[in-house]
Design a protein around this nucleic acid. Structure first.
Lengths: 344, 344
DNA sequence: GTATTTTGCGTAAAGGTTTACGCAGATCCT
DNA sequence: AGGATCTGCGTAAACCTTTACGCAAAATAC
C-alpha cells in the first residue's frame, strides 16, 4: 500500500493559449477582456483555443495586477438572525446587478473578528465592505477611517460624520411600539433587551426609558430584562420575566426573542394578547406567520441593505472623492394579533 | 467646484518594511511568516517597523505564489432557508478551528450560478468548495470531477462514487413520517412537494409514493401538490390543497412550507392536528416553537455540514490521494404537536 | 590550528496577469 | 507620391509575494 502523492497538474495559463494560437499573451489578454485592439480573425482563433484547452483566468494574478476583485463583503453579527438574511439578500441583489459577487461573513458578534476583517480588508479578497457591527466602538471607527477600501456601516442612529453610514433610530422604533401598547391600555410593560452592551441594545433600552418619561410613567428597573437576541434566549428568560415582573405586556428588543417568549407563554397556557401582549422588532418573516402573529416594528432591513450596497458601489465605481454620506430610514410600526385584543 | 481625483495612496509593501529596517525582503518575509532562519534581533526590528508603518500583507500576491487562500466556500441554494443557515454555522465552526475562513455563496437555486462557481473554482479565491446543489445533473458531476480544487457535495441518497459526498436519504425520511401519520389513523394524506425538478423534490415525492405502496394504499395524484420550498409558497398553495384534496393530513416536503400551510389553516379556523395533521421536514428551529409545534423529520443538516467540512479539510491538508468517500446520515422522526391529537 | 557544520541573510526567479509603449504595415489625405 | 493616421500586435515592466540557492561569518569539532 503505497502513498501516491498528488500530481500537481499545471494549470493552463494565458501563455498556453498564446502559444497554441500563435499570438502573444498581450493579444490573448486583450481578446479575453475585450479591451484594446485586435482583429476579428485573431479573436476567433484565441477564443477557440481558450475553450479547447479549457482556459480559465487566474483571479489571483488578475486582481494582483488590477487591484480589483469584483467582490464585496457583508459582515453581520449572526447569520442565524433572519433580519440579517433579509439584509444580505437585498445586498446580494444589488451587487449582482453590478457584476459583483457577495461574500457573506458571520462574525458571531465578536469584536475581534470585526477588527480583523476591517484591518486586513486593505488587501483581502474584496473591494469593499458593508458591516453591521453589534458593537461600534471608537476602535471600530478608527479602523474604518483608516481602512484602505471603502466601508459602509449599517448601524443605529448615530455614526461618525466621516464614515459612510446607513442609519435607523431603533430607539424611536421602541417608542412607537410603546405608544401602541399604552394605547391598548397596557400599563405594566416589561422590556426584554438583547445584549445591553451592543448598539441596538443601548438604543432600544433608551427608547423604552424615553417612552416612559414621555408618558409620565415611573421608571421601574425590575421590569427590565436582558437576553441575547436569539429565540432560545427569549424562551429561557421568559419564566423570569413572568415571575418577577408580572407584566401585562412584554416589549421585546427583537422578533426572535419575542417568538421565544410567546412560545413559553403558550406552554404556560397564557393567552397572547388577552393575558399578555407581546411586541417585537425587526419584522422578520416568521413573525407574520406565527400564532398569534407578532406585532412588530420594521427597521427596513432589506431597504437598508439595498441603500448600503448602492452607496458602496458608488464609492467603488466613481473615482471622485465625495463627502461621506449618512443615510437614514425611519422605523414603522406593524400591528398584528399579538398586541390587540379583539372583542368577540 | 472641481472634481478631486482620488489620490491612490500606494499600499505599504514588504519592500517598505525591508528598506526601513535595513534588511532584505526575504528576511522580512521569513520573520513575518515565522519560517526559515533569522535572528531574534532582526525579528524584533522587523516586527517593530511593520507595526509602525502599518504593514499588512497583500493576500493576492501571497496566494498567487502560495496557491492557497485559506478560504473555503459553501454554496447553498437559498440562504433564506434556515436549514442552510444551520449547515453554514456548522461548517463555519469546523473551518474556523482549522484556521480557514468561510465564504458563503447563495446561488438562488440557479444551476448556471452553480456551474460558474465550480468551473472557475480552479482559480477563484478559495481552496475548496462544499456545495449543496438543488439540482444535480450530469453536468454538475462532470464539472465537479474536473474541478481543480477539492469539492464536497451535500446531496440526497445517491451521488457519483468518484465524488466526495455527504448523503441523506430524504425519501426514507418521508417514509418515516408517513408511517407515523398512518399510525395516527390518518388515511387521506396530501403531499406538498417543493420544486419537483430538484434532488430533494424527486426524492421526497418518491418516498411518498413508496410509502403508499408499502401500506397497500392507492396512488392518487390528485393528492399531490408542488410549491417552492418557501414559507410564502406553502401558504399560497394551501388553499388549493384544502379545496381540491380535502385531506386529513398534509405531508410537506420541508418545514418552511409546513409553517406556511399551518398559517393558512389557522386563518381558516381549522385546528391542527385535530382537523388536519401537518408534518414537515428539516427540523428548523422555528418548527419547535411554532404553534402548534411542528412534527418533522430531521435530516441532520448541522451534522452533515460538519462532516462535509471535515472531509474537505482533510482533502486540503493531506497530500496523499485518497479514494472519494461517501458519508451517510440517517433521518430521524421528531414527533411534536402538529400530528398527534391529545385526548383531553 | 584547520576542517566542518550551522547560522543569518541576500539575490533572483517564479507565480499569471494587465497594460504602457513602440513598431511595422496598411490606409487615408492632399 | 509623400506624409500623416490608423490598425494589429509584440516586448517588457509591474503588481507583491514566497522560496530555492548560495555565500560569508560564526560556531563547533577534532
Amino acid at each position: 500500500m503505497e502513498d501516491i502523492k498528488k500530481e500537481s497538474k499545471r494549470e493552463v495559463t494565458i501563455m498556453d493559449v498564446a502559444e497554441k494560437s500563435g499570438v502573444s499573451i498581450a493579444t490573448v489578454s486583450r481578446v479575453l477582456n475585450r479591451t484594446g485592439r485586435y482583429s476579428d480573425e485573431t479573436s476567433r482563433k484565441v477564443l477557440a483555443v481558450a475553450r479547447e484547452i479549457g482556459y480559465t483566468p487566474n483571479y489571483m494574478a488578475k486582481s494582483l495586477k488590477r487591484k480589483k476583485t469584483e467582490q464585496i463583503a457583508l459582515a453581520v453579527a449572526d447569520i442565524g438572525n433572519p433580519v440579517y438574511v433579509a439584509m444580505a439578500k437585498a445586498v446580494q441583489q444589488v451587487v449582482k446587478e453590478h457584476g459583483y459577487r457577495l461574500v457573506l461573513l458571520s462574525t458571531e458578534a465578536l469584536a475581534s473578528e470585526e477588527y480583523g476583517i476591517i484591518k486586513s480588508l486593505s488587501k483581502q479578497y474584496v473591494d469593499g465592505l458593508i458591516i453591521s457591527p453589534l458593537l461600534y466602538s471608537d476602535e471600530h471607527r478608527e479602523l474604518i477611517k483608516q481602512a484602505a477600501r471603502p466601508v459602509v456601516v449599517i448601524t443605529g442612529s448615530e455614526s461618525d460624520p466621516d464614515i459612510d453610514s446607513v442609519l435607523v433610530d431603533s430607539s424611536q422604533g421602541v417608542r412607537l411600539a410603546m405608544e401602541h401598547l399604552l394605547g391598548q391600555g397596557r400599563s405594566r410593560i416589561a422590556f426584554l433587551n438583547g445584549r445591553p452592551d451592543t448598539v441596538p441594545g443601548v438604543a432600544r433600552l433608551n427608547g423604552y426609558y424615553a417612552s416612559l418619561i414621555e408618558h409620565g410613567l415611573p421608571r421601574d428597573d425590575s421590569l427590565v430584562f436582558a437576553s441575547d437576541f436569539t429565540l432560545a434566549g427569549g424562551y429561557q428568560v421568559a419564566e423570569e420575566i413572568l415571575s418577577r415582573a408580572k407584566p401585562d405586556a412584554i416589549m421585546c428588543a427583537n422578533d426572535l426573542m419575542a417568538l421565544g417568549v410567546m412560545r413559553y407563554l403558550r406552554e404556560q397556557r397564557l393567552r397572547v394578547p388577552e393575558d399578555i401582549a407581546v411586541v417585537g422588532m425587526d419584522d422578520i418573516e416568521h413573525g407574520a406567520s406565527s400564532f398569534p402573529s407578532l406585532t412588530t416594528v420594521s427597521l427596513l432591513a432589506a431597504e437598508r441593505g439595498r441603500m448600503a450596497a448602492e452607496l458602496l458601489l458608488s464609492r467603488l465605481t466613481s473615482d471622485e472623492i465625495q463627502k461621506p454620506k449618512q443615510l437614514q430610514v425611519v422605523p414603522r410600526l406593524i400591528v398584528r394579533e399579538s398586541s390587540v385584543v379583539v372583542k368577540g
